[in-house]
Amino acid sequence: MIKHVTILLALILTGMQLQAAVLPEDRTEVLYHRYDGGGVTIDGPSVLVRKDIANKVSVWGNYYMDFVTSASPDVLSQGSPYTEERTETGAGIDYLRGRTTMSLSISQSSESDYDAETVGFGISQEFFGDLSTISLNYSQGNDTVKQNGTPEFSEPAHHQRFGVGWTQVLSKSWIMAVNAETVLDEGFLNNPYRSVRFLTNTGNVGFQKERYPSTRNSDAYAIRSMYYLPYRASLRAEARYFTDSWGITANNYELRYIHPYKDQFIFEAKVRTYSQSQASFYSDLFPHIEAQNFLASDKEMSEFSDLAIGLGVSYEIKASRLKFFDKAVVNLYWDNIAFDYANYSYKVPPNPGDENAVSVAIGEEPLYSFNANVIRFFLSAWY
Score class of each variant (00 low, 15 high):
F281T: 01
D340C: 11
R236F: 01
E126G: 03
R216I: 03
D36E: 15
L199M: 10
G187Y: 03
L76N: 05
L9F: 13
L96V: 09
V330P: 00
A250N: 08
L189K: 03
T133S: 02
W382Q: 04
K3V: 11
P45K: 06
T28Q: 15
A222H: 13
V68F: 11
I53M: 00
Y138H: 08
G120L: 01
L285M: 11
T144V: 00
G353W: 10
V49D: 15
L379E: 11
H4R: 11
P366K: 00
T89A: 15
L11I: 11
E210W: 05
N251Y: 14
V30Q: 14
G165Q: 05
E316C: 13
Y95V: 08
M226F: 04
E300C: 01
W166F: 08
Q19S: 08
N142G: 10
E290S: 14
L104F: 12
P349Y: 14
E365T: 02
S103E: 14
I309G: 10
T41S: 10
G247S: 06
G79R: 01
I7A: 12
G39F: 07
S46H: 15
A361R: 15
V59E: 11
T87K: 12
N373V: 09
M1D: 13
A279N: 05
M16R: 07
P213S: 01
S277K: 12
E254L: 01
Y274K: 05
Y341S: 07
S103W: 07
S154H: 00
F377V: 08
N252F: 11
I289V: 07
Y82R: 01
S109D: 15
Q140G: 09
K323A: 04
S297W: 02
A357K: 03
V178L: 06
A222K: 13
I123M: 01
L255I: 03
V5D: 12
V145Q: 09
I7V: 13
S124Q: 06
K262W: 06
S297D: 12
R194T: 06
T41H: 07
F286Y: 12
T133Q: 06
I42C: 15
F265K: 01
K172F: 10
D219R: 01
M16N: 06
A328G: 10
N343P: 14
S345T: 13
A54K: 15
Q264L: 00
R197H: 10
S135G: 10
G310H: 05
Q19Y: 02
A342L: 10
M301E: 09
I93Y: 13
D354A: 08
L76H: 09
P156W: 02
L136K: 01
N251G: 12
S171E: 08
S173W: 03
V68M: 09
M176P: 02
F281A: 01
T89R: 12
G122A: 05
V49F: 15
Y114C: 03
V178S: 03
V178N: 00
L235C: 03
V49H: 15
S320H: 06
Y257T: 01
R161L: 12
Q276R: 02
S135T: 00
Y315S: 00
G38A: 09
Y221M: 13
S70N: 15
F339L: 03
E111A: 07
S77F: 14
V358I: 08
Q160Y: 04
G39E: 11
F242D: 14
T28A: 15
S218E: 12
N343L: 11
G203E: 14
V59L: 09
W166V: 04
S245H: 07
